[in-house]
Simulated assay, not measured.
Amino acid sequence: MHWYVEPLQVPDQMEALVNWLTENIDQHHPIIIAALIHYNLVRIHAFDDGNGSGSRILMNLILMKQDFSQQ
């Protein structure tokens, strides 16, 4: 079973996710970071529409900034 964050918790959860990314981006393998960010952005369900699309864009941005290209 998958549970989304309660709507009132979204701002705090988004802030925690951004803080976690800032603190950990260089501490773990880029694929691990990208996967965790993707999962958690979907879990937080921060947008009325486009959670999957937004999560994939952010995941790809993280990978591109770490020199992982889509080949």
Rank of each mutant, 00 (worst) to 15 (best):
M64K: 15
I32D: 12
V18G: 00
E6Q: 10
H45E: 03
N40W: 04
Q9Y: 13
P11I: 11
W3C: 10
Q71S: 09
R43E: 11
M64S: 13
L58I: 15
G52E: 08
E23K: 14
L58Y: 08
N40Y: 04
L36V: 02
P30N: 04
Q70Y: 14
N40C: 00
N24A: 11
L17W: 09
F68E: 00
I33D: 04
G54F: 02
Q71F: 07
Q66D: 07
M14N: 05
Y4C: 09
A34G: 06
G50K: 08
L63D: 09
I57R: 03
I25E: 09
V10C: 02
Q66R: 15
N51A: 08
N51V: 08
Q70L: 15
H2R: 12
D48Q: 13
L61T: 12
V42W: 04
S55P: 05
S55L: 03
G50H: 05
V42A: 11
Q70T: 08
F68S: 02
V10M: 02
I37Q: 04
H29Q: 12
N40A: 01
A35L: 08
R56C: 03
D12Y: 01
M14Q: 06
L61K: 04
S69T: 07
S53W: 09
N60H: 13
Y4G: 14
Q66F: 05
L63S: 09
V5C: 14
F47A: 10
G52P: 06
I32G: 02
Q71G: 10
D49C: 02
F68C: 11
M14V: 15
A35R: 08
P30K: 08
Q13M: 11
F68W: 14
N40D: 13
M64E: 15
F68I: 14
I31S: 13
M1E: 09
S53K: 15
Q70F: 13
E23P: 00
